[in-house]
Simulated scan of single mutants.
Amino acid sequence: MSVKPGKARKLNYLSQLSVDTAHHVITDIQAYHAEGKDNQYLEDISNRLKKRLHGQGLIWRNCLADTGYSSGENYAFLESEGLRSFIPPHGTYKGGPDGFTYDKSQDYYTCPQGKIIPFKKEFIEKKNNTRKKEYRASKRVCIGCPIRSECLGKSAQEKKFTVTFYRAEYERNNVRVNSSEGRYMKSKRQSTVEPVFGTLTQFMGLRKINTIGIAQANKVMHLSAMAYNLKKYLKFIGKTVKSDAQGMHHFVLELKASISLQIRPLTALNI
């Protein structure tokens, strides 16, 4: 069951698709139940895809995806696999409160008034089942602070906030995303994956699956991907054959010209 704001509930499958940026070949496709989020399936996709590519002697270096696949867990997983992520973070991500600076070596924050907010504990947030770190100052630190009412609000006695456990992984990913290479990668992803999705849904009938069960849905998706890749292969072979024929034609012309040049001096010498 898929639920989207402002739209009716529907029985859907979630199609996850990976595409090679060099030739727009579908390298992996899988159907999942639609109640999950995209970022929950990235690890499964990556494990399956990496094994397949390595089996063909292909090296995978970069992972391009949209914001739906963003999570600290995914960034950390991709780094452990030796992959560079280019996945824009969610708009809600912050490396800490506004105006606070982070000290990586001592793992604490400094507030705008120069007071230290130390790390207190690590925990799992139940709402999203995500790993978090809590930072909290003591009451005496915040007493008498000139910006106390703005910083703490009405009821709080001390400054307390949580930050994702994977802050370092987020920051490294964000540096890549905001670089010139990251901007290029974003345009590359948009021109690679989106057209493939459009072809599958608009021209190959994947807007609806007329089967029962996720296993049958996967068969339909795999057959569609096979048909798509076969068309790409035939098109590529056609270009290769045409270019080979043109190359052979030019070779023959050059060979004839070379023979002609060699014959003419000999004829002149004989005369």
Rank of each mutant, 00 (worst) to 15 (best):
K186S: 13
I259S: 12
F251N: 06
G114T: 03
V193H: 02
K127P: 04
Y109K: 00
R183A: 09
H250W: 06
V193G: 03
T211V: 15
S85W: 00
V193Q: 07
S85K: 05
S179R: 06
P97M: 05
S180N: 00
S243V: 11
G55T: 00
M248K: 10
C63W: 00
Y166S: 02
S85E: 07
G36W: 10
T192Y: 01
N229M: 14
K219H: 11
V3D: 07
M248V: 02
L14D: 07
A65E: 11
R207V: 03
R9I: 02
N62L: 14
Q113D: 12
I59H: 02
E73K: 13
K126F: 11
G198K: 01
Y32L: 10
K104A: 13
S15D: 12
P195Y: 07
M221K: 07
Y75S: 00
A22E: 14
N129A: 08
N129V: 03
Q157F: 04
G72H: 06
L230K: 08
K4R: 03
S224F: 01
Y166G: 02
S2T: 00
T110C: 05
Y41T: 14
L49Y: 05
S85H: 04
V177Q: 05
A227W: 10
T211D: 13
L266C: 15
A22F: 12
L223V: 09
R136H: 02
P97G: 02
F119D: 00
S149A: 15
K235D: 09
L64T: 02
K121N: 10
Q16G: 14
K120V: 05
R131T: 06
A257S: 07
G96Q: 08
S191Q: 11
V220N: 10
K232A: 11
T101F: 12
S18F: 12
K126Q: 13
I124W: 10
T267K: 15
N270C: 15
I87C: 10
F165W: 01
S18T: 14
